[in-house]
Simulated assay, not measured.
Amino acid sequence: MANSPTGDSVADRLIRVLATFTPTRTVQTASEIGRRAQLPRSTAHRFIGELVTAGLLERDEDKRIRVGMRLWELATRSSQALRLRQAAMPSMERVQQRIREHTQLAIEEQGTALFLERLSAPDSGANVTRVAGRLPLHASSSGLVLLAFGDRDLQESILAGPLPAVSAETITDPAVLRRKLAEVRQLGHAVAPGYVEGVSTGVAVPIRDETGTVIAALSMVLRREMPVGDALVELHRAAKEIETALGAPRG
């Protein structure tokens, strides 16, 4: 798979092709992939064929294309995200069983909150997040925790804007966001009423590694009318359990 005549590398084309798949667009035709990846038709069909041969993509009985199991296998080998998820799952399950609302695990990735896991009960309230989905850091409780405890360059980059509104109550003013981040650091958790959906409140706490660095956020999405106290108690307890499972010292 050599570089193309236009100068884009194999890596460039691979990233563009894989980026055409989303949580709601899991199967596509080769032509659709080529158009969305901005590849010439002949190049797209040849390149996709090579990826299918390599097992990174798969072709179904209708000749439509989906992400291949080989890509999943390679991506999860020695994955820090997988290790974090495995350490978090027992505690997440206990939290979800006790509170009976959406329980989520997120990390900061390329300036967004990337959700690694979500547990839900059949009667849980509204929630737009999904596994492998993303939200802006300023617009969710998980994102606020990751941003508040993130490095200064990340904070200033997000504060520089734009701060798009996900709902009518999302913080879009940099000065207000700066005060909110200071509040999160002081309290040790984030409460985000209506920031993503007007009917829900997000609550989140940090998860730290053995150096004390915040590496993830553990959150719940509650119905707007629910008190947040019990959820925060359970989340803080679970975060400590996860930190211990990851090898962080107690205390």
Rank of each mutant, 00 (worst) to 15 (best):
L181D: 11
K240P: 00
S9W: 11
T53H: 11
P90R: 14
H45P: 00
R134S: 12
L105C: 07
E32N: 12
V17H: 02
A238V: 03
D123L: 13
A19K: 10
Q110I: 00
V176E: 15
L116Q: 08
V196W: 01
L218M: 10
V214R: 02
A44N: 09
P206R: 10
E210V: 03
V27A: 06
K180I: 00
E58M: 10
V191D: 03
V221C: 14
A106Y: 06
V203R: 11
A148C: 06
L187D: 08
S140N: 08
E243N: 00
L71T: 06
L74I: 02
R36G: 14
P162A: 04
A148R: 02
T26G: 01
R178G: 07
R224S: 11
R250K: 06
L135C: 07
P174A: 05
A81I: 00
L39I: 10
A19Q: 12
V214N: 01
S31D: 15
A75M: 11
Q38G: 00
R118T: 12
E108S: 14
Q155K: 07
M220P: 03
K180T: 14
L135E: 15
V221M: 08
T6C: 13
L159T: 08
E93I: 10
G133L: 11
L82Q: 13
D123W: 05
S79Q: 07
M69W: 03
T112I: 00
V205T: 07
Q86W: 02
M226Y: 03
D62E: 14
G143F: 09
L154N: 06
R16A: 15
E58R: 15
P5Q: 04
A175I: 11
G34R: 07
T43F: 00
R13W: 08
A239C: 07
M69G: 13
I242F: 08
E108H: 10
L144R: 14
A148W: 02
E50K: 09
V176Y: 01
R36F: 09
L57E: 12
S42G: 01
F47W: 11
Q86R: 14
A2C: 02
T76G: 07
E58V: 10
R118S: 07
S79G: 03
V166T: 11
R130D: 06
L181N: 12
T43S: 14
E225F: 12
A44T: 09
A165E: 06
R66S: 15
A165H: 09
E156P: 02
Y195C: 04
R223M: 06
G49S: 12
S4F: 14
G55D: 05
S9N: 04
G229F: 07
L181P: 12
H45V: 07
Q28G: 05
A148L: 03
T22K: 14
L14N: 02
G188M: 04
D153G: 13
A160C: 10
S120F: 13
R98M: 06
A44S: 15
L218R: 02
L154S: 13
P5L: 13
E101M: 01
A75F: 02
A88W: 06
A216T: 04
I15T: 04
L56C: 01
R178E: 15
M220E: 13
V203Q: 04
H102V: 13
L18P: 02
D151N: 15
I242S: 09
F21Q: 04
V214H: 01
I33D: 01
A113W: 07
V196C: 09
G7A: 10
Q97C: 00
L235F: 08
